[in-house]
């Protein structure tokens, strides 16, 4: 199964301990995960959030959320069936088939987008990317496009489908290296772009034209950081349904490099 492939990159010793063998008797059809999602939303959201998000009394279960130590199907099965002793996480008391359905769902939300079957027309998605979506002004895929935003050539192997969808639809926290900034030099020149790096003494600006401009703070009259990312959002509204789905499908298949997703907590000893 796909997730075990990711795990394989992490290290053989760790892998052996976590038993990567696919063991879900229900298989990995999308319908199984979808049924699991409904079961989960019914049984678990008194603590965890809906669809695996963060809840009032339980952590988010999708992998951008927190550190996970249970990645294999067997480990997740064990937690859902038996709970985590000494914590608020209870044994579910559900029959095994239901537990397996939930396992399929949890694995699904932790997978990278490229691990899932995302319906949609990839070619049309690319046309949206370079055309009406305006994405390629800021993003590069396989050498084509702008540089202000991150390279998306491997985004399908890096981001979960949720993260991809959120990037396109919601305003999110600005990641390091992409804080929009407007600087005014002592001479009165104004430059806009993203601060690839900055501290109290210097600022490394990638300006809107894709040119690096490097300043010591003493050379600036002001550096005003914006609170919102340059990344537009609300594409679920500005694009039509097909365009949006095709774009999502195209992004999910960008896997130039199989990057090891940052499952926080991997290889760490203790918490």
């Amino acid at each position: 199964m796909k997730l075990s492939l990711i795990v394989a990159l992490v290290g053989a010793g760790w892998l052996a301990a976590q038993s990567p063998k696919p063991s879900n008797p229900l298989g990995d059809a999308p319908a199984v995960a979808e049924a699991g999602r409904l079961l989960y939303n019914r049984s678990c959201t008194s603590c965890h959030g809906p669809d695996g998000g963060e809840g009032a009394r339980g952590p988010a279960l999708d992998f951008a959320g927190r550190r996970y130590f249970r990645v294999s199907e067997a480990a997740i099965f064990d937690v859902v069936k038996n709970g985590i002793a000494g914590t608020a996480m209870p044994a579910s008391g559900l029959p095994d088939t239901d537990v397996w359905g939930i396992v399929a769902f949890v694995r699904n939300i932790r997978a990278t987008a490229s691990d899932l079957v995302v319906p949609g027309d990839e070619r049309n998605g690319m046309a949206v990317f370079t055309g009406v979506g305006g994405c390629s002004k800021c993003h590069m895929i396989r050498g084509q496009g702008g540089v202000l935003g991150p390279d998306l050539s491997s985004i399908g192997a890096q981001a979960s489908l949720n993260r991809l969808r959120d990037s396109l639809t919601k305003q999110r926290a600005i990641p390091n290296g992409y804080r929009p900034v407007t600087v005014t030099t002592l001479k009165g020149e104004v430059f806009r772009g993203v601060a690839r790096n900055s501290d109290a003494f210097s600022l490394q600006l990638l300006d809107e034209s894709g040119k690096l401009r490097l300043f010591e703070m003493s050379e600036l009259r002001s550096a005003v950081f914006a609170k919102e990312s340059l990344m537009p959002y609300g594409f679920d509204k500005t694009l039509n349904k097909t365009q949006f789905q095709d774009l999502l499908a195209m992004l999910s298949r960008q896997t130039r490099t199989k990057v090891k997703p940052t499952l926080q907590g991997e290889n760490e000893v203790g918490r």
Partner: peptide, 19 residues
Amino acid sequence: MRLRMMLAGACVTVSLAAQ
């Protein structure tokens, strides 16, 4: 509208970069 504004604000042309 925010989206349109952003797109207009960032007319990126790589060819202007330091070369």
